[in-house]
Design a protein around this nucleic acid. Structure first.
Length: 397
RNA sequence: GCACCGGUGGCGGAGUGGUCAAUCGCACCUCGCUGUAAACGAGGCGACCUAUGGUCUUCGGGGGUUCGAAUCCCUCCCGGUGCACCA
C-alpha cells in the first residue's frame, strides 16, 4: 500500500494527537513504511448518545482506514458493566446488561456515518469485548493481575487523588485497566487510539501485549476537546456537549450555540476542512467561521443535501425569527389543558414551570405575540415558541 | 469489633427545635442586549390548586419525643478517622 505522506502530515498537524507511546517519531515511521497495521479504539457505551468528542476520535480512525490500515471499533459491552473508575470520589456506576444493550443499539447508528463499514477492500470492523472477557476464568484474571503491582495501579492520577482525599477505592476498579488491557491481547492489535484520559488503561494493554505476545503496541493518545478559554471539557454534565443523535437542524443549531472559543478546536479536530483554509475562514469572523464548521460537521453525519437544508432552516428560524420546519407536534383536543399536553410531550417539566415561563414572557405564538394566560387554550392549530429554542406545533383536533 | 466525626436540593456548602420549601456560590431556565456566541443587567429555580393566599411532599432509611423536627432521642444503612484484631 502507498503511504500518503501529505495525508499523514496533515493529520498530525491538526494537533489531535497529543502523545504517542513509545514515540511520535516511531509511529510516523511505521505509518510511512507502508506496512498495514491493526488499530482499534474502545468505547464503553455509558450513555445513549455520542458527542463530538467521541466523533473526533472515530473520524481520526476513519482516516487511518483510508490510509489502508485495519481499523476496529471495539464496544466495551463487558467493561461498561464494570465501570471505568471516574474522577469522582465514588466509583462510577456500573451499568446493567440491559442498559449496555440499550445504549449500544444507539451508538452503532451514530458511529456508522463516521466510518466506512462497507468498503469492499478494507471495511472498518466492529467488535465487542464480552466476546473474550466473559470467557476468562478467575485464574485467568489472577494471572493477568500478576503483571501489575498495586503501586502501579495507584499511580493512576484518579486513584492518587482519591487516596489524598481519603475517598474509597474499590478493588474491582483495579480490574478495569486489566480488562481493557486484555482487549489489546485478544485482538492482537498494533495500535490503540484513546483519549488522554485513557492513557493509563491503554498502557496497561501495552504492558500486557509486551508480556504475553512480546509485541510493542502503539498508544496514540488524542486530545479531549475543551473550551480553551474556560478549560471546560466537552461533556454532557457541563452542558458543552454536542450530541450527534440529533436531526440535522438540531445538530447545526447546537454547534451554533457553542461559545466562540470552541470554533478552533472543532475546526482542527472534528472537521476535515484543509488546514490551508483555516486562516481565511477564521478571518471572516466568529459567526461565519462557526457556520462553516457547523455545515461541515452536519454534512459528515447527514450528507450535503441535509446539511444545506439545515443551514437554510436555521438561518430562517433564528436569523430571521421564523420557526423550524421539523418541530414537535402535539395534538390538542377540546377540554385539554395545554400545560398537561406539553408536560406529556416532555416540552416542559411541570405546570408550575409553565406558569413561570408564561409569567416571564417566554411563551409566544408564531407572530411573536406573547401568551400571558397560563390557561390559554388554542382554538386552532398554532405554533408555540417557548424561550429561544423550544418550538411546538399544537394541532387542534 | 470499639470510639469519634459526618450523610442537606444537579454539585459545592450554610442551617443545628418554630420566622425553613431550607442563606449563599456554581450549574441550569427565562427576559433584556446580541451573532441561538461571550460579557453584562434583571428575574426564576419541589409540586399542585378555585392562587398577592393555600395544600402536599422534601434535608441517608425507619421509629420516637414535641403543639411544632433538617435541627432532640432510639435504631438501621452508608462514608471518613483513630484504636484493636489479623491463623
Amino acid at each position: 500500500m502507498a503511504a500518503d505522506k501529505a495525508h499523514i502530515e496533515e493529520l498530525f498537524a491538526r494537533g489531535t494527537v497529543v502523545e504517542v507511546f513509545p514515540s511520535k517519531e516511531e509511529l510516523v515511521k511505521k505509518l510511512l513504511s507502508g506496512e498495514k497495521i491493526r488499530v482499534y479504539i474502545g468505547m464503553d457505551p455509558t450513555s445513549t448518545a455520542l458527542h463530538l468528542g467521541h466523533a473526533k476520535n472515530l473520524i481520526f480512525l476513519e482516516e487511518l482506514r483510508q490510509l489502508g490500515h485495519e481499523v476496529i471499533v471495539l464496544f466495551g459491552d463487558f467493561t461498561g458493566q464494570i465501570g471505568d473508575p471516574g474522577g469522582k470520589s465514588a466509583a462510577r456506576k456500573q451499568l446493567t446488561a440491559e442498559e449496555v444493550k440499550h445504549n449500544l443499539s444507539g451508538w452503532l447508528k451514530q458511529v456508522e456515518p463516521l466510518l466506512d463499514f462497507d468498503d469492499k477492500k478494507n471495511p472498518a470492523l466492529v467488535k465487542y469485548n464480552s466476546e473474550w472477557l466473559s470467557k476468562l476464568s478467575f485464574s485467568d484474571v489472577a494471572n493477568l493481575a500478576t503483571n501489575f503491582t498495586v503501586q502501579q495501579m495507584l499511580e493512576r492520577d484518579m486513584f492518587a487523588k482519591r487516596i489524598k482525599e481519603n475517598a474509597p477505592i474499590y478493588l474491582h476498579e483495579f480490574l478495569y485497566p486489566l480488562m481493557q488491557g486484555y482487549d489489546s491481547v485478544a485482538m492482537d492489535v498494533d495500535a490503540e487510539l484513546c483519549g488522554t484520559d485513557q492513557i493509563f488503561n491503554a498502557l496497561a494493554g501495552r504492558t500486557l501485549l509486551k508480556r504475553i505476545k512480546n509485541k510493542d503496541k502503539f498508544v496514540i493518545a488524542l486530545n479531549l476537546i475543551a473550551n480553551p478559554k474556560t478549560g471546560e471539557l466537552m461533556s454532557k454534565s457541563n452542558g458543552t456537549g454536542v450530541f450527534v443523535d440529533q436531526s440535522p437542524t438540531q445538530l447545526y443549531g447546537a454547534i451554533m450555540a457553542l461559545p466562540d472559543p470552541m470554533i478552533e478546536p472543532l475546526f482542527l479536530n472534528v472537521t476535515r476542512i484543509p488546514l490551508s483554509e483555516k486562516d481565511s475562514i477564521m478571518a471572516e469572523g466568529p459567526r461565519k467561521a462557526k457556520a462553516r464548521i457547523a455545515l461541515d460537521i452536519v454534512q459528515r453525519f447527514h450528507g450535503e443535501k441535509e446539511a444545506a437544508a439545515a443551514e437554510k432552516t436555521w438561518e430562517e428560524t433564528f436569523s430571521k425569527g421564523g420557526v423550524p420546519e421539523d418541530m414537535l407536534e402535539v395534538s390538542f383536543g377540546t377540554g385539554d389543558s395545554l400545560a398537561e399536553v406539553l408536560i406529556k410531550a416532555g416540552v416542559i417539566p411541570s405546570k408550575t414551570e409553565w406558569r413561570r415561563l408564561i409569567d416571564g414572557g417566554a411563551v409566544r405564538d408564531e407572530q411573536d405575540e406573547k401568551i400571558s394566560d397560563a390557561n390559554f387554550a388554542p382554538s386552532k392549530t398554532i405554533i408555540l415558541k417557548i424561550g429561544k429554542r423550544r418550538f411546538v406545533k399544537v394541532v387542534v383536533s
